[in-house]
Write a protein that binds this DNA or RNA. Sequence first.
DNA 1: ATAAGTGCAAAGGTTTTGCAGTCGG
DNA 2: CCGACTGCAAAACCTTTGCACTTAT
Lengths: 138, 138
Amino acid sequence: MENRATQLEQALRRAGVRVTRQRAALLRVIAGSEDHPDAAELHRRAEAAGAGVSLATVYRTLTTLQTQGVIEKLEFQGEPARWEAADQRHHDHMIDVDTGAVMEFTNDRIERLQAEIAAEMGYEIVHHRLELYVRRRG
Amino acid sequence: MENRATQLEQALRRAGVRVTRQRAALLRVIAGSEDHPDAAELHRRAEAAGAGVSLATVYRTLTTLQTQGVIEKLEFQGEPARWEAADQRHHDHMIDVDTGAVMEFTNDRIERLQAEIAAEMGYEIVHHRLELYVRRRG
DNA sequence: ATAAGTGCAAAGGTTTTGCAGTCGG
DNA sequence: CCGACTGCAAAACCTTTGCACTTAT
């Protein structure tokens, strides 16, 4: 993840985005997170790592990184926005309504059907959101 | 829609929910709306109809009506929540990212696939959210 | 009668922003 | 060097809530 963060820094610089101490720290926090933290949580983790970043900068950085395609924003029902690294292959989310656990899944057939539906109506998909709010069977 | 609103009033009373002047007015606004208005817009429409309802009551009423299963809450990306009557059959939404237009669609195959995916992982679906953010082809 | 509902204004939680100072390229 | 970036505090935004008053049943 150190490496991944370093790669991203170079990509950002190439794109003309300055790599400040704060941004470098956040890149490392994000690269090292396997879950789906919100801005406050990322701020906490950055501080815990001794970063010295303001919450305002966390928000601004998240927007910047999203624009650069480095991270993706998740907005589950009525919670603060969460974020995840964008370096994985596309997937959707399943949320356990009892525990709040977030799981990931993919299904090519659903993807294709979505594209077909849009095409039939004369549109193309820019992006989509598929969330399953679920409960353990019992 | 007058009739629909009246039906709903009776259902509410049966459920032990009081039908106040404000709630009756909102029921009529909702029954007469074919789009997906947010709380502020519903408030405006109610006021335009001479209702005399506070915005706080609009919010409280929306929550109540949702609990009663009369309306459904839609939370599209980063906008205030929107609402729609729940008297229709289930459908998902397609949002034109350029115009903001919201269209509805259904696809049984997608519905079935979702249930299968959840089942495979040992869950059952409580509810789901499928939104296609699209752009006109050209 | 009386519990449920309302209006108002204040507070809540998340996110954005203006401004003056700082720093990366 | 200088424009992009930051911190701080204030504001914006949508939504909820406490309290005293009103009203549907």
